[in-house]
Each structure stands twice: as structure tokens, then as C-alpha cells.
């Protein structure tokens, strides 16, 4: 087995290994922004588990409150994130 060097082409901009506290916070905020829709999808998939038909169905009022409650929470979380992301300024790059 031959030993090869680290396979990083020189042109590729390498991101630093450790970040300043501020940049680190910002990255985590972005992670949160990425995670939010996944969370929303999961929570809104919960109605798939609700029983339908004869066996004591979920009341519509409860369903409405659940779905709209999550909606409001998502809006609130997105609002907070958008404010925090704005404070950090725009960062070029950061993936897609």
C-alpha cells in the first residue's frame, strides 16, 4: 500500500478548521435554519398517525389547534432566525 498525501487540490478554498466565536454562532444559526423545515415536515406528518374511521377519531378542533399551533411556532422560529441571521451580516459561501 503506497502512502498518498492529503488529497486537497490547491485551488479549492479551504475553510478554516476553527472559527471565531461569532462565525461559529452564525454557522449554527444557519444549521438551525436548515433544520427548521425538516422539523416542520415531521410535525406536520404526525396527523398521518391519527386514527380515522370508527375508532374514536381526533376532533377537528384539536386537529386545527395542533396544525395551526405548529404553523405559528414555525413562523415564530423563522422570524427569530431571520433577525439573528440579519445581525450576523451576509456571509459569502457557506454552501448551498
Amino acid at each position: 500500500m503506497t502512502e498518498t498525501g492529503p488529497e486537497i487540490s490547491p485551488e479549492r478554498p479551504r475553510s478554516p478548521l476553527f472559527l471565531q466565536r461569532q462565525s461559529y454562532r452564525r454557522r449554527r444559526l444557519i444549521d438551525a435554519a436548515r433544520f427548521l423545515p425538516v422539523l416542520g415536515l415531521l410535525l406536520w406528518a404526525v396527523p398521518l398517525l391519527w386514527p380515522t374511521g370508527e375508532q374514536e377519531p381526533v376532533h377537528s378542533s384539536g386537529a386545527l389547534i395542533y396544525i395551526f399551533g405548529i404553523w405559528a411556532l414555525l413562523v415564530l422560529a423563522a422570524f427569530v432566525l431571520s433577525l439573528r441571521l440579519k445581525v450576523g451580516g451576509t456571509e459569502p459561501g457557506g454552501g448551498g
Partner: peptide, 20 residues
């Protein structure tokens, strides 16, 4: 019933996940 909600839930998720 509640089917109409799906038409709004999808776009909400897309907007909340704008970073993607």
C-alpha cells in the same frame, strides 16, 4: 375536510427552508 391545508403547508415549508 382538511385537505385544503396541504396546499398551504407545502409552500410554508419551502419558505421556512429558504436556506436550502
Amino acid at each position: 375536510g382538511f385537505e385544503y391545508l396541504t396546499i398551504y403547508l407545502g409552500p410554508s415549508l419551502v419558505m421556512v427552508g429558504w436556506w436550502w
